[in-house]
């Protein structure tokens, strides 16, 4: 059988209740935000990975975010 992705109930179940959530302050303004907090849980391969980050985004360089100004990736952190 081929699966079907047209059921509204199945769509609502996923799109409303699940997926990445970004708080409104992080979406509409960088002004006045000091810390971006990231909590991630990935359920795959029978292993739960829980990650917590707090990034100081006030330090973001304006130039880094300007379109076209692609800086090289930093060295991977352990």
């Amino acid at each position: 059988a081929q699966p079907d992705s047209s059921s509204l109930a199945e769509v609502l179940d996923r799109v409303l209740d699940k997926g990445v959530v970004v708080d409104v302050w992080a979406r509409i303004s960088l002004v006045g935000i000091e810390i971006l907090t990231v909590e991630a849980r990935v359920v795959a391969a029978s292993v739960d990975t829980f990650l917590h980050y707090a990034e100081e985004i006030a330090k973001i360089e304006q130039a880094e975010l300007t379109a076209g100004a692609e800086a090289p990736e930093p060295a991977p952190e352990a």
Partner: peptide, 24 residues
Amino acid sequence: TVRYTGPWPPYNFVDIHIGAEQAQ
């Protein structure tokens, strides 16, 4: 009755919340 749905992006396997703390 078997209801078989998808394929979906992995909604049930990804849980990420991004927040912001304001300086004020």
